[in-house]
Amino acid sequence: MIEIDGQAGGGQLLRTALSLSLCTGIGFTMENIRARRSRPGLMRQHLTAVRAAAEVGHARAGAAALGATRLRFEPGTVRAGDYRFNTGSAGSTTLVLQTVLPALWHAQTASRLSLEGGTHNPMAPSADFLADSYLPALLPMGIEASVTLQQHGFYPAGGGILHAHVQPATFKPASLLERGELVTMEAWAILSGLASQIGARELGVLGEELGLAEDALHLRSIKPPVGPGNALLVKVHHRKHAATFAAYGERGVSAEHVARKLARDVRAYLASPAYACDHLADQLLLPMALAGGGQFTTHTISDHLQSNARLIEKFLPVEILWEREADRVWRVVVE
């Protein structure tokens, strides 16, 4: 039984611990869950992730309740199957999915999942990121899964539906060091229950700041609307990798501000030849550790990457190192 202090991280530490516990059969207790957040303890999406992990892994999750700041998790046997999970809100379906994916990679047969809640949330990977960036990056590691977006779900209404199909993995180390030359870059403004002018203004800024032609700017309105929502996406396709960036409209924040912030994130990535953006980088650690090794390049070493690395080392016999190779290029090695 591993003891973990959760106050130094957010929900990511909990999700990583759940994934690793199911994969290794090692239980854990976590204290001070999300202690430094404005609303400490388990929120609905975290509780859904705990319950999903318990169902997939026939585990015992003592004291799992909304607001709980302590959790004891004892894993059982992971089984493939058809699963359905509902956050009951706009809580992120993608974070719940990422929690159980590693366990299902170890199952004997394929699994299907249906998840309901938020699909495009601030502070969580979008469904587009999973489909276009995260899962394709895992293919060289022998990991195969797919996601299909049936219905968008925005904060605070939720109502999104995401389907996933997961195959048993044949783990192998991979080197993801170069993304190759730029092929295409496109932007999407997705609106639900909001005026199309908002998306047009966002796309206008992205076109100007990223040098995108008119045919690379796409405006989509969700019909019928699923509550008010606005997601702004930029997809950057290089020969060996596709990166997906997202920003979200907020009440009281101008469309131009949302677009400029997203453009800054994209330019920061393009300014480096590294393979992974900062969001993908920390998410590559766990599958590489399960594969027994691997390496990739990224343009920055985030706090999330560092905390994730140290937690993975508690469960698995690996060491995760990183060193600067050039300006805006870091090599991360799992060995």
Rank of each mutant, 00 (worst) to 15 (best):
S89F: 01
G118P: 06
T77H: 14
L97M: 09
E74V: 15
L115Q: 06
A145I: 05
R70T: 14
M123F: 07
L138P: 00
G81R: 09
R70D: 06
T109W: 04
T77I: 13
T109I: 05
A61T: 09
T99W: 01
H106D: 08
A68I: 06
A131P: 00
S92Q: 00
A80G: 14
N121D: 00
P125V: 07
A103C: 06
L97N: 09
R79C: 09
S111W: 09
L66R: 14
T119R: 00
T69Q: 15
G91T: 07
S146N: 12
G91K: 03
E144K: 14
T87N: 01
A61R: 07
D132Q: 11
L130R: 00
Q98Y: 04
R79V: 09
T93A: 07
G76R: 15
T93N: 02
T69W: 10
E74H: 14
L71K: 15
L101F: 11
A145W: 09
G67H: 14
S133P: 00
A64S: 12
A68V: 08
P125E: 03
T77N: 12
F73H: 13
A68K: 14
T109Q: 15
S126C: 07
D82T: 15
S146M: 08
R84C: 10
S92D: 04
A65G: 11
G117D: 07
A107L: 04
S89E: 03
G117N: 08
D132M: 13
L139E: 12
G67C: 13
A63V: 04
P102S: 11
T109K: 15
G81L: 12
T99Y: 01
H106E: 07
E144Q: 14
P140Q: 10
L135W: 06
F73G: 11
A131L: 08
A131N: 01
T93D: 03
F129H: 03
W105C: 00
L66C: 11
R79I: 07
S92A: 09
T87S: 06
V96Q: 02
V78P: 01
L135M: 09
T94G: 01
R112E: 10
G76M: 14
T119L: 02
P125W: 01
V100C: 02
L97K: 07
A90I: 01
S114V: 10
A103Q: 02
P140E: 11
A68C: 10
G76A: 14
G91L: 04
L104Y: 10
T87I: 06
S92V: 03
A110E: 12
A137R: 02
D128R: 03
P75H: 13
G62F: 13
T69R: 15
G118N: 05
L130H: 00
S114P: 02
R72M: 04
A65Q: 14
T77D: 11
L101V: 06
T99S: 03
A68F: 11
L113R: 08
G88P: 07
G142K: 09
M123E: 09
F73C: 08
N86W: 05
S133N: 05
A131K: 05
T109L: 06
A110M: 08
F129S: 00
